[in-house]
Simulated assay, not measured.
Amino acid sequence: MMATTVLTLVGSLRNGSTNRQLAEATALNAPDGVDVNVYSGLENLPFYNEDQDVEGQVPAAAVELRAAAAEADALLLISPEYNGTMPAVLKNAIDWLSRPFGAGALKDLPSVVIGTAFGQYGGVWAQDEARKALTIAGANVLEDVKLSIPNSVVRFAELHPKDDAEVASQVAEVLQGIRAVAESN
């Protein structure tokens, strides 16, 4: 059986962010049969512009992101919450992946949104906004597979998420949920 490849996009560009650490924990706790590919390069992706999205003019960063998504069996977004919503870098990635509309790299791709945030709800507003954008873009959003970790700054002040047994178990469950749907497609 082939492994399920999960393209993972992290909404925080800061190296030491708790969401980037959550991505690391996810990759380290992937169950057998799941390969988590944490994408690097979202900071190079220009804001979506339909004038640039024509054959021969698509920016290299967009071509690379689309190729990574086309090779993936599923998508995992890991989102912090910025001012009550998802970071612009994630929305921009969704915009590039949604084109051409109805036939973009997100079309029917099993997709999940998780994350951690400082507040008591763990970034659920941002995650809900990301799910909404993914759904409109044509992704197969797995509404039952969720993980919101609250109080990130306190919880992970001295403990990396990979060393948190509860988080390790939770991310493994998320990935198992993704694999189950990806394998049934």
Rank of each mutant, 00 (worst) to 15 (best):
T5M: 11
V10H: 00
G11W: 03
S12R: 03
N15M: 09
S17A: 12
T18V: 09
E24M: 06
T26Y: 09
L28P: 03
D35G: 02
V36R: 01
V36T: 07
S40G: 13
G41P: 08
L42T: 10
L45F: 02
D51G: 14
D51S: 14
Q52V: 11
Q52L: 15
V54C: 03
G56Q: 11
V58M: 10
A61I: 05
V63K: 13
E64W: 05
A70C: 12
L75F: 08
L75N: 05
L76I: 04
L77A: 10
E81Y: 01
E81R: 08
N83G: 05
G84S: 11
P87F: 06
P87L: 03
A88I: 01
N92A: 06
P100I: 07
A103E: 15
L109V: 10
S111Y: 06
G115K: 01
G119F: 09
G123N: 10
G123A: 05
Q127F: 08
K132F: 14
A133D: 07
A139S: 15
A139G: 12
V141I: 13
E143G: 06
V145E: 04
L147C: 03
N151W: 12
S152L: 01
R155V: 05
E158Q: 11
H160P: 03
Q170M: 11
V171Q: 04
V174L: 07
I178P: 00
A182V: 04
A182W: 00
N185Q: 14
